[in-house]
Simulated assay, not measured.
Amino acid sequence: MSSIELFAGAGGLAMGMANAGFQHSAVVEWDKDACQTIRENRHHYDSHGEDFVLFDGDARDFDLTPFVDDVEIISGGPPCQPFSLGGKHKGNLDERDMFPVAVRAVNRAMPKAFIFENVKGLLRQSFASYFEYIYLQLSYPDKPKRAKESWEDHLGRLEALHSSGKQRPTYNVCFRLLNAADYGIPQKRERVFIVGFRSDLKVEWSFPEPTHSEYGLLHSKWITGEYWKRHKIPKSKRPQAPPNIEARLQRLEAAKKHAPGRQPWVTVRDAISDLPNPEKSSPGLFEIPNHVFNPGARSYKGHTGSPYDEPSKTLKAGAHGVPGGENMLVKDDGSVRYFTVREAARIQTFPDNYVFHGAWSETMRQLGNAVPVKLAQVVAQSVAAVLR
């Protein structure tokens, strides 16, 4: 099934789509370093039989015309800084808001489906009206904003159409806030996924159910001890169990955060413990791409790093391309160091031979903006299953 990837970044969503069986006709990204990363890793996509166009430029300038009759799905992560909790919160007033471009692409190509991903901040109460506007635009992409019409007036027109029942939506749209940790990614990363299917297809679909849980991790650490045994950590070196762990497990169970068959959350230790220590020169260290120690890490208010035995905190791109202090590991002795690019790539579930282009801050920015490959694949596979 053919696809077009907009706002591709370093390729996390694009690679997850490819792993799910979609074949890219075009990949669109404006950032030069991110484009070079995709070029240097093209073999990851070629292995799926793909020969796509890499458009190195502004998505607003990308001509969809050659792909209109061929593309079956459009995907992408419209730049999230307008809605990010770490950004300036300008929303639709921010010139980086690319949702209008995404809507125009859907209107132009009329694919069978689309998948868009964005930050949790998109669901903030202060953006509620604009999120409704995004939702209704994607539901009725064939009813675009008129010349000189404000977005508020366009929203009112779409609300009137939607409530009248005179026309069924062109796309049936679902959205959900997903936590990557619930799907086996070693990171507590909450992101909004917006998925739509063309209504004439009469598709019945829902978001895939979580496969992992916090309950499972806590139980394996503090009740059975299986987690520590698996990592060969003797009882004398294990941390103390938190107080009232049984009550905490009961609360999670009561909140339906536990279901039989769900695996434990994946931790930072699970993800990176087999990599050589980047602070020490060791055999094989320099054979691993992007696994280079970067000094100068420190804790400060609001940025305390990620504990080794939990999923990491959300990796961040950071303001002006400088990653925040959360892109750090808290070591067993309580000190901190920056994650290497390779460690961050593992946390974002990129394969070890996926090489990132650019300086450390630039590559960390690419990773902070990326969709975890495995999470993208889980969502894309569920969409592919019903389209087939």
Rank of each mutant, 00 (worst) to 15 (best):
A247W: 01
S299Q: 14
A180V: 05
V371L: 07
F83M: 05
E326Y: 03
D142C: 05
R189A: 09
S139T: 14
A20F: 08
Q348L: 10
L387T: 04
A34R: 14
G324M: 05
H154M: 00
N92C: 09
R176T: 09
S213A: 06
D33A: 14
T349Q: 00
D56N: 14
H258T: 08
A255V: 02
K166T: 10
S199Q: 11
I245G: 00
V106C: 00
A376I: 00
F99R: 04
E310R: 14
K112Q: 14
V28A: 09
P169F: 09
Y227F: 12
I185H: 04
L93K: 07
K331G: 00
D31W: 11
A359V: 05
D63A: 13
G77Q: 03
T170Y: 09
M15P: 01
L6S: 01
E152P: 04
P307D: 13
E159N: 12
R251W: 01
R248H: 12
P141L: 05
K188W: 13
F7R: 09
A113S: 13
R269F: 05
F114I: 01
G305A: 12
F197K: 10
V355S: 12
A10R: 05
F22H: 07
V71N: 07
S273H: 15
F350E: 03
N327V: 00
H162L: 01
L387A: 02
R96Q: 08
P260T: 04
V371K: 06
L6K: 00
S335F: 02
P144R: 08
H154W: 09
P351M: 03
N294I: 09
T37V: 01
G165N: 08
Y354I: 01
V355T: 14
R198S: 13
F127I: 08
L161E: 02
G305H: 11
Y133W: 11
K237S: 11
V192G: 05
L315N: 03
K148T: 15
Q381T: 11
S273P: 13
R146C: 13
F339Y: 13
K229D: 14
V53N: 13
E362H: 13
P100Y: 01
S84N: 08
K143A: 09
Q167F: 10
V266Y: 09
A34F: 12
L285M: 12
Y130H: 11
W151A: 03
F339V: 08
E72P: 02
